Simulated scan of single mutants.
Amino acid sequence: MPPTDASADTGTESASETRGGLDPDSGPDSEDTLELRLPDDLIALFTASSAAPGVPSEGEVDHGRAPAPGDGSHSAWSAPAPHGTPEPHYREHRDDLLDHVASWGPAVTSAGAFRLEPVRTDRDLPLLTRWMNDPAVAAFWELDGPPSITEAHLRPQLDGDGRSVPCLGLLDGTPMSYWEIYRADLDPLARHYPARPHDTGIHLLVGGVAHRGRGLGTTLLRAVADLVLDHRPSCARVIAEPDLRNTPSVAAFLSAGFRFAAEVELGDKRAALMVRDRALRALL
Rank of each mutant, 00 (worst) to 15 (best):
A111T: 06
A111R: 10
A111K: 06
G112N: 04
G112Q: 03
G112H: 00
G112V: 03
G112I: 02
A113H: 14
A113D: 12
F114E: 00
R115I: 00
R115K: 12
R115Y: 11
L116F: 08
L116R: 02
E117P: 02
P118N: 00
V119L: 01
R120K: 04
T121E: 11
T121Y: 04
T121V: 14
D122V: 10
D122C: 09
D122L: 06
D122Y: 10
R123G: 01
R123C: 03
D124H: 10
L125C: 02
L125H: 01
L125W: 00
L125V: 03
P126S: 01
P126I: 00
L127I: 07
L127N: 06
L127K: 05
L128K: 00
L128R: 01
T129P: 07
T129H: 02
T129V: 04
R130E: 08
R130L: 12
R130H: 11
R130P: 08
W131P: 02
W131V: 01
M132W: 05
M132C: 13
N133S: 10
N133D: 11
N133G: 09
D134A: 12
D134V: 11
P135K: 05
P135Q: 08
A136G: 15
A136E: 15
V137K: 07
V137Q: 10
V137S: 02
V137R: 04
A138P: 04
A139I: 09
A139E: 14
F140E: 07
W141C: 11
W141P: 07
W141F: 15
E142V: 14
E142G: 12
L143W: 00
D144I: 01
D144A: 15
G145Y: 09
P146E: 12
P147H: 07
S148L: 11
S148T: 15
S148A: 15
I149D: 12
I149E: 14
I149T: 15
T150Y: 07
T150L: 06
T150H: 05
E151W: 13
E151R: 15
H153Q: 12
H153W: 15
H153D: 14
L154S: 04
L154C: 08
R155Q: 14
R155P: 08
R155V: 13
R155M: 15
P156I: 01
P156F: 06
L158K: 04
L158Y: 09
L158T: 06
G160A: 08
D161R: 12
D161A: 15
D161Q: 13
D161F: 15
D161Y: 15
G162F: 01
R163G: 11
R163K: 13
R163Y: 13
R163T: 13
R163F: 13
S164T: 14
S164V: 14
V165Q: 02
V165E: 00
V165A: 02
V165G: 01
V165K: 06
P166F: 07
P166E: 07
L168P: 04
G169A: 06
G169I: 03
G169K: 03
G169Y: 03
L170I: 03
L171D: 02
L171Q: 03
L171M: 00
L171W: 04
D172T: 03
D172F: 06
D172A: 08
D172E: 11
D172P: 10
D172M: 06
D172N: 13
D172H: 02
G173W: 09
G173M: 07
